[in-house]
Design a protein around this nucleic acid. Structure first.
Lengths: 257, 257
DNA sequence: TGCTTTGCGAGAGCGGTGCTCTCTGTTGTG
DNA sequence: CACAACAGAGAGCACCGCTCTCGCAAAGCA
């Protein structure tokens, strides 16, 4: 990511810290650009998003926009981060609302909660967000634009959903509410090493469970992509019941029932 | 194109009576355009594919290209169909090579075949094709370009892989080599009607099996998309062993072992 | 055979894009 | 107050998809 873009992000972070008028105006205009770009993204898609159109809508000349975003790709990058965060926020909020006690930062003593119900709520929230924001979903889970290389900044927002799944499974596991998965194969070799990275995040969870969680993770987004991108037309369309059944069968696949 | 070449083409046309030289030349140039476009697609991606660049490489002026493809989207459409067909061909050929007897048009009496082995071979072939042709994969399984609406022409090539999965499962089923899936839920309501469309294609297959097959289908392409689009970087990358394990667990999920 | 219709490539042109560079005026700072 | 940093405007470059017109050659027809 470019230094100018990092500068923008830094400014927005400390926006209300009483900086100079110029910096304040810069942060504000920067947000406005993002907002207009997001709106255009929703209508014309990532491919059709144009800096000139954004600048036109803002009443400024296109070259001025480059003071804020050094290239179209940089603008897309912040939109990508925002999309990941919005999706993660939707998923985490669904977990909280369904009564999960493990949500980060909540820490309150748990009442009774149903792990399966939370699982279904999270998956449904992910799908609902994707259907409500198809272009933003396509931006982050569709084909990467050009030779686009995801900057390191996008990694952390991108893993919020799988991290939530890990947290849910761990809480259910420590409460003894997960089936044993005796018939699931234990990862070996390279696969075991890769899964070990996840085990470090959730001590105590069996590797075979985390491996299955990764499988379910890919299934979830494969299913949503198929629905949004039209691959289910003619068979499982509308996909509501298919999604629900798949979600529950995949929940059983990781031991939730 | 040179006049000498046109003359050659005309002579060959006279030998293959029926089509005029003009039609023959048109078909040939049309193929050449497709070929150049496919090569450019592989390097610059769908978004970067440009009619002007194609025409430049062919030594003609861009406006002439519109005699063959009325728009950029039309060119992309034939590339999409070709990609679907290439992928389907790769999958079917892998099934044949692994000794499957159900392949369309083969009809030969089967020797012994291992359904699970064929299953793994087909899935691996799909992944291998995707990795070898990432831009074409992204073209058909990534975000749909623009407000692109898939023409009816693309449907039939698009379902070759799932149809192959159905055929494999049916053959294994009639040979009594599929587990019973007693714990799998039977689809009801709308979902049962949707699955009924698949049952019509494969009489005798239990609806709950076909439902699971659809789940596995979405998992397969979700996994491949994640690998190609960079979502597995940092966890299951490289994805060879993850893919293999997932494939086999999903095979067990539909009763293959 | 000669005439007419059809198809094809070339060329110019329109409005759009991302991006760069220069110039002018303003704002913040020593 | 002077100087440096910065923001916006404008022109311009090289591309893009697409349209239109204009000759010319091939195909169809009398």
């Amino acid at each position: 990511m470019s230094r100018a873009l990092l500068s923008v992000l830094w400014h927005t972070e400390v926006m209300n810290a009483g900086r100079t008028a110029r910096e304040r105006a810069r942060a504000e205009l920067s947000d406005e650009i993002k907002s207009v770009a997001r709106r255009q993204l929703a209508t014309v898609g990532a491919e059709g998003l144009s800096l000139r159109a954004v600048s036109r809508e803002l009443g400024m000349v296109s070259s001025a926009l480059y003071r804020y975003f050094p290239s179209r790709d940089d603008l897309l990058t912040v939109l990508i981060i925002d999309a990941y965060d919005a999706l993660g926020e939707a998923a985490e909020s669904a977990a909280e609302k369904s009564g999960a006690s493990f949500a980060v930062g909540k820490g309150e003593a748990a009442g009774a909660w149903d792990p399966l119900q939370t699982w279904v709520a999270v998956f449904s929230a992910v799908r609902a967000w994707a259907r409500a924001n198809p272009q933003e979903y396509a931006l982050i889970y569709g084909s990467p634009v050009l030779g686009y290389q995801a900057p390191q900044t996008t990694v952390q927002p991108a893993i919020r959903v799988p991290l939530l799944m890990v947290a849910l499974l761990q809480q259910a596991h420590t409460e003894g509410r997960l089936a044993a998965l005796e018939d699931a194969p234990e990862p070996t070799g390279v696969l075991a090493e890769q899964v070990a990275v996840l085990v470090a995040l959730a001590p105590g969870l069996p590797p075979r469970l985390l491996l299955r969680m990764m499988i379910v993770w890919t299934q979830l987004f494969g299913m949503i992509s198929f629905e949004l991108f039209g691959q289910l037309v003619g068979s499982m369309d509308p996909a509501d019941e298919f999604f629900d059944s798949a979600t529950r069968q995949m929940a059983a696949f990781v031991g939730l029932s």
